[in-house]
């Protein structure tokens, strides 16, 4: 016979094992971020010395000075922000408008057109990189931010998200009532729908901003001068030099990653729920 006490300890074991596993995985996940911040405060010679630094040093300021000297750092920071901001604002408008169109109207070809929107999600993005570059080259948009945000104004993910939310959150009677009151269709969208979909706009805005902030492949081919590049692209160019200043690169990387970590700390739940909502409903 197993005594009750012993069985409760045995019952606890899987739970303790679970905790241990979660902590180990968590440490492995956090460690690279930790080293990024630590290395940002050390010189190159310290980073690759023995033992490697495990705690913060005092060279953040000099790393920062190296950054300013080697790359147009704040210019790149502004470019990154501007691009992310433009993509986010336009996406919120055009995706909610299209989502409203798909959610609240019956019109000819609605289903096939919506299927086309979803199908574009399956097109591997990077395969268009070269013809996209040639098109931008042809219309003379090389080195201009609009080459990167105009094509990204109305993505399929956003339309899908907004449509799902509007279908579930806005009763059709409300739209009909507004119409009887004399609202034009655009006024219905602007005055009735938009205020009611704010939670979904918040989530879509976060997702879009993060994606745009981290853009690399297309920025890398479209923005050819140091002054027009975004931070991820310009940080990458530091790596190509001889005697790479890894401390400075880590400082720049930390400054690139930090705002997103902050945003994520404030809105992690909303973001994670938003990202999975589409997947679960499917």
């Amino acid at each position: 016979m197993v005594s009750p006490k012993r069985s409760s300890i045995l019952g606890l074991l899987p739970r303790l094992g679970g905790y241990a596993l979660l902590v180990l995985g968590g440490v492995l996940t956090i460690a690279p971020f930790y080293f990024m911040f630590v290395f940002a405060t050390h010189q190159r010679s310290e980073i690759f010395g023995f033992p490697p630094p495990l705690w913060f040093g005092e060279h953040f300021w000099s790393n920062y000075q190296i950054l300013l000297q080697k790359i147009p750092f704040w210019r790149a920071y502004w470019n990154t922000f501007y691009l992310a901001f433009m993509i986010t604002i336009t996406t919120l408008f055009f995706c909610s408008l299209a989502g409203f169109g798909f959610a609240m109207y019956n019109f000819r070809w609605r289903e096939p057109l919506f299927a086309v929107v979803l199908a574009t999600l399956l097109i591997p993005a990077i395969l268009n990189l070269i013809p996209f570059y040639l098109l931008i080259y042809q219309i003379g948009w090389i080195n201009t931010p609009k080459a990167l945000w105009v094509p990204a104004m109305a993505g399929a993910v956003g339309i899908f998200m907004m449509r799902q939310y509007i279908v579930s959150a806005i009763p059709r009677e409300l739209v009909d009532a507004a119409r009887i009151d004399g609202c034009s269709e655009f006024q219905i969208y602007w005055r009735i729908v938009l205020p009611l979909v704010r939670p979904a706009l918040g989530t879509l805005g976060l997702i879009t901003f993060i994606g745009a902030w981290n853009k690399f492949a297309d920025v890398n081919v479209i923005m050819r001068t140091q002054e027009t590049k975004t931070l991820p692209v310009v940080l990458r160019t530091l790596q190509g030099a001889t005697d790479v200043e890894w401390g400075a690169i880590m400082a720049g990387t930390a400054l690139l990653v930090a705002p997103l970590l902050l945003v994520f700390a404030l809105a992690a739940r909303q973001l994670m729920e938003g990202l999975t909502s589409g997947a679960v409903k499917n």
């Binding site: 995985g25 690279p32 080293f35 990024m36 902030w213 981290n214 990458r236 990387t253 690139l256 997103l260």
Partner: peptide
Amino acid sequence: VYFLPYITSSVAIALI
């Protein structure tokens, strides 16, 4: 915590 790497720039991750 486990989700953090997903929102981080691939370039930043590769550099780290």
